[in-house]
Amino acid sequence: MSALGILGRFAAMLVLLLVNGVVLIYMLRKVLGRLHLRIGPNRVGPFGLLQTTNDVIKLLTKEDLRPDSADAWLFNIAPYLIFVPSFMAYIPLVFGPTLAVTNLDTGLLLAFALTSLVPLGVLMAGWSSNSKWSLIGGMRAAGLQIAYEVPLLLSALGPVMMAGSLDPARIVAAQSGVWLGFIPRWFVIPQILAFVVYAIASQAETQQTPFDMSEAESELITGFANEYGGMRFGFMYLAEFSNTFIVSAIGTMLFFGGWQLPWVATPAWLAPFVFIAKTYTGIFVMMWARGSLPRFRVDQMLSFCWKVLIPVSLAWVVVWACVQRLWPVVAMAVSR
């Protein structure tokens, strides 16, 4: 790949990330508003559409403050440490049969590896702010995200076993066609348990209500981010929304056939739209959860993860491995 090609791809990723950020923030406000019988933004521009753009301008032009007692070096790089992995995680996404930033045999692993770097930045931001609320937020984020990483990865193993590959393109390709003539071959159907675990863990991974103790508006006032202002805060905010997009996109690829329409063959030009539509549906469900559930306590959250989610997903991996191994034998015996 030429240097220009690489730059072009990076530019496309950046544009996608920024557009996602702006659209998702607007969508979040509208969806939460409607779920709570409100209207949401409605003053700036038609239907309040320009609200987010105005917010971006506000963040860009704000003074860049740093507390005197903050650890300057860590404080300055933490937002980028949060932002860069979530930017890089666009690399393994497959938008269509030929449309992806690059094809990686271990793309899925890369995506999970990158998203698991985020807690590091969060912890760094919390520590370097030198404020107890930030520190509490950072510690909670680290504890929570590291804990939820485990079920997240385990739940991805089911579809990976079914597709026999860690390459997202091949996982998606394995979901084409139908079972028994009418059920789309989406992995969500046999892997429903894994999907539920994935949905819960990804909600926690992106620090959204009901698992947003690291931000905890009511007690910590955005926790780890509360000493940040201006565009540094903007980066963290943007990363949060781009992470939401990424977990939803990965979920779409793992469980809902990626860019493929059910039953009919998907033309190449339609594929990215199908993929984005599915991803946004996933995001809508995440926002729906966000607007419906109150925040858990930290201890409830951790014990739920270690005592329920991890055992369940571990057991599922074992069960599914056995099923997958034994199925051909059983099928053969039956057909004989």
Binding site: G33, R34, L35, H36, W288, S292
Partner: peptide
């Protein structure tokens, strides 16, 4: 939890009650 989800979804279809 499911009941909570149902309530918010019903709200969504009820439409806003905001008076501008």
């Amino acid at each position: 939890i499911l009941k909570g989800f149902a309530i918010t979804m019903r709200n969504m279809f009820r439409g806003p009650i905001t008076v501008m």
